[in-house]
């Protein structure tokens, strides 16, 4: 059995190949433009944002005049006042992300798996997924206003089947805001899941069937786990921008559906309360960072990514 023993420790445990000599200088040179761009347009603004969030009004100054300080109370004040909008933003983003996942996964599955090998059909379906990007985000959201309007067929149909009371409406409701968010971020959910499923080796599905797993079990035990990287990136690409979004709630909501993006917008542009706007932005950023870190850790897809 010595052959076998030797085999067991065969090529896998052999000496590692000699490391390729790295040209360090060259790598940094290639990274330089990117680093410079990020430094200038990301690091500097973030530092400025952090600083602004701690500013205090100039005593006796005009509206919108602030001076540097370490006013940590800006944060407690902002949170005390605007926590409902903050919570609502995350709630809407979460519901929209789940809804987008439910809609996008089967869509991506059909395009990637069922249409596998039919290049033209796959291409056409992908174009359809991306097609909304050809028109402006604002226009498409305004169009939803028409779709969900009181006199629209959607409302009429929902009333007819008693999904809505006879006097029920969809515009200016939280439903409309979440529907808008779901719609607008759907491609960001679909494409990464599609990419994951496209890469999935169909022979693994056959192996599942060969090992006594029926269709649903193979999906649950093989296909879904292997598409998790796509699901994770899709949910991140949807949840992060959706929680900071304000266009949908401005165009499709009312004053009870205000999201945190709207608050930042109005604090900043309407009342020139820069420190509060900055503090809310920082809180949003940190909250997203924490939520996303926890999510990625929990989903345990690091090694698949």
């Amino acid at each position: 059995m010595s052959i076998v023993a030797a085999l067991g420790h065969g090529p896998g445990n052999g000496p590692a190949p000699a490391p390729v000599r790295r040209a360090r200088g060259g790598a940094y040179l290639l990274l330089a433009p990117g680093l410079a761009y990020l430094g200038l347009f990301f690091v500097v603004p973030v530092v400025a944002l952090l600083a602004t969030s701690l500013y205090v009004p100039v005593p006796g100054g005009d509206v919108g005049q602030f001076q540097p300080a370490f006013e940590w109370a800006n944060y407690t004040r902002a949170l005390a006042t605007y926590w409902p909008q903050m919570v609502r933003s995350f709630a809407y983003a979460l519901i929209a992300t789940l809804a987008a996942l439910v809609i996008a996964y089967p869509m991506a599955y059909v395009i990637a798996v069922r249409a596998r090998g039919r290049v033209f059909l796959q291409g056409m379906l992908l174009v359809l997924v991306i097609a909304p990007f050809f028109t402006s985000f604002i226009l498409r959201t305004v169009a939803w206003k028409q779709i969900l309007a009181d006199e629209s067929f959607v409302v009429a149909a929902m009333r007819a089947v008693s999904l809505l009371p006879p006097d029920g409406r969809l515009t200016a409701t939280s439903f409309a805001v979440v529907a808008g968010l779901t719609y607008n971020f759907l491609p960001f959910m679909t494409l990464p899941i599609y990419a994951s499923l496209e890469r999935l080796d169909p022979r693994l599905v056959e192996a599942g069937a060969d090992l006594y797993a029926n269709g649903p079990t193979t999906f649950w035990r093989v296909t879904l786990p292997l598409s998790m990287p796509g699901v994770v990136s899709g949910t991140l690409l949807t949840f992060i921008p959706a929680s900071g979004d304000y266009v949908n709630s401005v165009l499709l909501g009312n004053n009870t559906t205000t999201m945190i993006g709207q608050v930042v917008d109005s604090r900043f542009f309407k009342v020139s309360d820069y420190p509060t706007a900055a503090a809310l932005s920082v809180v949003l950023m940190v909250a997203i960072l924490l939520l996303v870190t926890a999510y990625v850790r929990r989903s345990g897809t690091e090694e698949l990514l």
Partner: peptide, 8 residues
């Protein structure tokens, strides 16, 4: 299977 098809 020829490609082994082990679940990664």
């Amino acid at each position: 299977f020829q490609s082994y098809a082990l679940f990664p």
